[in-house]
Design a binder for these strands. Structure first.
Lengths: 328, 328
DNA sequence: CTGAAAGCGCTAACAT
DNA sequence: ATGTTAGCGCTTTCAG
């Protein structure tokens, strides 16, 4: 594989000139630039990014560590991050921590070792330690879930308020007893959505809560259990769209129809939400915008890391559809 | 940030010993190993992966370039790749080419420049040129779609046959006129599924075909147009699950019920396929297994690149559900 | 405007 | 078993 010296030899110049020419430094004779470019092309020269980055002490890649590639909420975030990174010439590498603290640690280590320019992170737990990054000066922005230290930027959604409003919406539409199906304890969004739910039901009726992995299978079992243990339940607040799949499966198994028999509101506006009958009422989060904003903050901080930490709180929006009204 | 010499100084040994100790080379005095490890820990030493890789002339990262992170089919592949890579100590970075040849090129260049160990690629077009990789000895395995040269491993699905069978299934269940909604011309899976459709309808009735981006919005418009232009259509073969969303939206807009009014079979068993009423008949592809197998092949080839190219053909399976039977 | 040379942090011969 | 040393391929002073 051709190196810069091969190109230099072929073009009859020094490696320094090749470097300058290829990187568009102004101070090079146009004639030489042309010669260098031709030599590079003839040799099929591809710069060695490792050597370059080692020398420059910086890379143009961002790491995005999310907890579930198969969750549309996170892939939308990924699109947002990617689109803005792209415009600034950064590549983004996506790492799937799988809601697993060990995997997350490993990817965090990889991020340091590969000296990425910055990382966007959706922490699996509150205990995530990003000191290895920040200690080295690598900026980190947390998305969807806060980072313990409170150091660094974060872009979150006011998910507790959204959960309270969604629960209130159900209560205001004639449902008498709302249950909450949420994610694992310790996952901040799961806890916040539960808290919002509690805010709304307190003083109205006892709380009915089930927790499971943020996955369909767990949510299905939890719902089945809930329905059996608490038959008075006539509405459900579901903490994300992946769980919603399991919840809807469980309802179907019990012959319960969303809306009429059991009101349902789920977080995240999945693409299929309007296909089911009745269509699913959702709390839509601005996922793409979360990613885009996180990338903007990260880029800004890569350029200038002296400013204080920022906290951006985006709003979620209730989209009322058929699954939360009793008509029909 | 601490370097290997800092650790060496603190432990009172040479950098070579530090390197050996930290990399678990057998030939180091256990006492020294301990001293080195302690020094490293005290300094919060994190090896510089760039320097290491530059020196070693190799990296332990695989690139996975797919055309749509938001398509569950591809994210399942990603899971498959990741799971097997993980077990061999490789990290995988996910790049989203967005079905765009330019972006794909850029990521291919990044892959060369960062000297990744290998790449799993779902080519956007038939013209994708991976010579930059292969010329350098970087193995490439194609998934879902073949690579022009025929060089390198590939793991594909017999999608043409699957499309033929699915179309035959519709024809065998009383539908008289089946249309095909597929992806853009030049995208191999889109063309193959169309070919399979043609295999089945030829001699039975004229073909009715619409093409659109592999996205919901385009498929919706295409379906609306198709329904207007060819009202005799009573069944639809849809080339992927993302398009299926648009197709089902269009059907709903026209007041047409899947199964009874219009038979529907779509590629890819999306998680929501059983939630709609009637549930969606699908052609399930072994996406996870495609990714896992691709990663295995890639790893094998990284270890030994002398064997000839292989072609793995996996089977898709028709899962018959309510949307393709006229009952009710 | 161009070249010579140093050096990023690490690993792998080669010595000892 | 450990240390010395020479690079990996590039960019960037520093001279000229």
């Amino acid at each position: 594989m051709a190196t810069i010296s091969d190109v230099a030899a072929r073009a009859g110049v020094s490696t320094a000139t090749v470097s300058r020419a290829l990187n568009g430094k102004s101070t090079v004779d146009p004639a030489l630039v042309a010669k260098v470019q031709q030599a590079a092309a003839e040799l099929g020269y591809q710069p060695n990014g490792l050597a370059r980055n080692l020398r420059r002490q910086e890379t143009a890649v961002l790491a995005l560590i999310i907890s579930d590639v198969e969750n549309p909420f996170f892939t939308s975030i990924a699109r947002g991050v990617e689109d803005v990174a792209q415009t600034s010439g950064y590549s983004v590498v996506l790492c799937n921590s799988d809601e697993n603290a060990d995997k997350e640690r490993r990817y965090l280590d990889v991020a340091v070792q590969e000296r990425v320019a910055g990382v966007v992170l959706s922490p699996t737990g509150t205990e995530t330690d990003v000191a290895v990054l920040t200690g080295r000066g690598t900026p980190v922005v947390a998305v969807d879930r806060p980072l313990a230290g409170g150091t660094g930027d974060q872009v979150l959604v006011d998910t507790r308020r959204a959960a309270r409003e969604a629960t209130g919406h159900l209560l205001g539409h004639g449902y008498r007893r709302v249950a909450c199906v949420t994610g694992p304890s310790g996952v901040r969004t799961a806890d916040d959505r539960l808290a919002g739910y509690r805010d709304a039901v307190v003083g109205v009726h006892d709380e009915v809560v089930r927790r499971a992995e943020y996955k369909a299978a767990g949510a299905r079992r939890a719902t089945l259990d809930l329905l059996d243990a608490d038959p008075g339940t006539d509405a459900l607040l579901v903490a994300n769209s992946t769980m919603a799949i399991g919840v809807l499966e469980a309802l179907a198994e019990r012959g319960l129809r969303p809306g009429r028999d059991v009101g349902v509101v789920a977080f995240d506006d999945a693409p299929w939400a309007t296909l089911i009958d009745p269509p699913l009422t959702v709390v839509a989060q601005p996922a793409y915008e979360i990613g885009a904003e996180a990338a903007r903050l990260l880029l800004a901080r890569i350029a200038d890391n002296t400013r204080g930490p920022t906290a951006t709180l985006l709003d979620a929006r209730l989209i009322e559809r058929g699954s939360s009204v009793q008509s029909s």
